[in-house]
């Protein structure tokens, strides 16, 4: 089984580097929670992995394949999917059209719609007319329909009602259990750590803690110092 390896990646943005020398590995079947304060560089790291931002130094590999200089489309074809922060729906497309961008068969569309019954009712309305939470569901469903081997999720909870969010977490877990490797960025640190196996804390662009998620969950003091940026 291939893993996705991020090796000493540095990302520059505007004034200077916003991610410095970050390394991590995504393993099939496992969820890695990536947490850290606002502005730590979580989104920038995800964007560097998926090709939205260029990598200044370091590399990203899936198995033996070097993705560092590959296009976004090339990385997608290697099995990488990135759910962007904010609700990245195509508002002018209907819900179904959004899903069909990635689903290969009608069966796949039905499968993801089964995960989000709310969407089935709105299948033919333009995504722009959906509520914020419904739009976030479209984005999730669309990514699931691509059946990616590696899934980067940036702030899934954004705009979702807490009950919907807590219902979705098991869906993510199940997706991992079926063999996907997931990198989960989440403001609700405890919920993310609760379903993750591995944890990475970033602060000011650097990794300040890396280890099993349950350990970090059990040790609030460690989490606190890692957030404040003290590497240990």
């Amino acid at each position: 089984m291939n893993t996705l390896r991020v090796n000493g990646v540095t990302v520059a943005r505007g004034a200077g580097p916003v991610i410095r020398d970050v390394s991590l590995e995504l393993v099939p079947g496992r969820i890695t929670a990536l947490v850290g304060p606002n502005g730590a560089g979580k989104t920038s790291l995800l964007e560097a992995i998926s090709g939205v931002l260029p990598i200044a130094s370091g590399s990203v590999h899936i198995g033996p394949h070097d993705l560092t200089r590959q296009s976004r489309v090339g990385r997608f074809r290697r099995g990488l999917a990135h759910i962007e922060q904010g609700r990245a729906v195509f508002g002018g497309l209907t819900v179904l059209e959004n899903l069909r961008l990635t689903a290969r068969t009608g069966e796949q569309v039905d499968q993801v719609l089964a995960l989000f019954p709310e969407l089935a009712k709105r299948a033919d309305s333009p995504a722009a007319l959906l509520s914020g939470g419904e739009q976030q569901m479209v984005v999730l469903a669309r990514a699931f329909a691509a059946n990616p081997a590696f899934l980067l999720i940036d702030e899934m909870s954004l705009g979702l009602a807490p009950v919907v969010f807590t219902r979705l977490l098991p869906v993510v877990s199940r997706f991992a259990a079926e063999g996907a490797a997931i990198l989960l960025v989440e403001q609700f640190t405890h919920l993310a750590l609760g379903i993750a196996q591995d944890a990475v804390v970033v602060s000011s662009g650097r990794v300040t803690h890396q280890g099993p998620a349950p350990d970090l969950l059990a040790s609030p003091a460690t989490l606190h110092t890692a957030y404040l940026g003290e590497s240990r």
Partner: peptide, 9 residues
């Protein structure tokens, strides 16, 4: 950008 991330060339 989103379209490219979904594999649309």
């Amino acid at each position: 950008t989103t379209a490219e991330l979904l594999g649309i060339p």
